[in-house]
Design a protein around this nucleic acid. Sequence first.
DNA 1: TCTGGGGTCCTAGGACCC
DNA 2: TCTGGGGTCCTAGGACCC
Length: 360
Amino acid sequence: MGPRTHAWVLHVDLDQFIAAVEVLRHPELAGRPVIVGGRGDPTERAVVSTASYEAREFGVGSGMPLRLAARKVPDAVILPVDAPAYTAASARVMETLRAYPGAIVQVLGWDEAFVGVDAAFPEATARDLQRAVLERTGLHCSVGIGDTLLRAKVATGFGKPRGVFRLTAANWMSVMGDRPATALWGVGSRVGRRLAAHGIETVAQLADADLDVLVGEFGPRMGPWYRQLGRGEGTRVVDDTPWVARGHSRETTYQQDLTEPEEVERALRELVDQVLADVAAEGRPVIGLTLKVRYVPFTTKTFSRRIRPPTSDREVVLAHVLELSAKRDASRAVRLLGVRAEMPMPEDARDGHTPTRGGW
DNA sequence: TCTGGGGTCCTAGGACCC
DNA sequence: TCTGGGGTCCTAGGACCC
């Protein structure tokens, strides 16, 4: 298998995936505003993972503090995040897509994938896939059709919910030209603001922007890349090479801020053990560590270091993390701690053969 | 209403070497 | 006494996405 070019790129995106999985196993919740987040306790520090369409009507969306969401939707059903259940549901969806004759599937996350197909009528294929996913999993999805990964990805948004939309070089500018640059995948609010400072507000303006201006603002790599995004151009290669993780991290927001050194050390030991369990499961050592600390007024600092030689020894890793922790401001209470471990890429996955997530 | 958790990639600037 | 130019490695931070 590996990277391949097809006539069409389809982007399959499950509708309100997490909420839909919950409704599937709790049918009595159908039609009710369902919010999934944290441990399902709206009095805790946590945020919304997914809200059902019924809950979105009240202005609730992902990333919103759970407390606020609960207040906005008085009779909401609030459920805890159940990652294993979503992983299992996701696996069934991807299996279904792979079973489609001739399809190459590049998984992007729990609830979305690119599918490369050589079809004369991609809309028919899209409907086939929707039907197959619904039959096999009970879940609805939207499908974007494109002549590049980016166009397929952006097209999906116009198909939601349960629809199909095609975006190619032929209609890209007429559909996207007048929209804000931040409508593009990969252009967030910060980059949007920096573009606006140069008078670049829309997708069409970004597509026609002066390359020197973009390079001056964003560097030799990102500058040209943003203009390419504006044009909807980029790779059309779908790559089903299995994903190789660059690292693993665990972080925890504490319900009570940590003030005592012993509390911090105990928390770090816990995080290190969790991270090492994930790393060990891949049979790869640790070559880098990052400690993330969020202090009580909302500021976050990170401390990192390379580890050499590469190690799988718990005590060695722990010693490094504690050393990094010694650099933090011990006089300030801690709201969050995170530990990230980087792993070396295996030989056979180097040279960019493994697809970069979102690297179009 | 205070702001999760798991990821990836890029850039700037300093250290260090030849 | 002044101080090039190229290269790599490392750390910190920024940005984005689901």
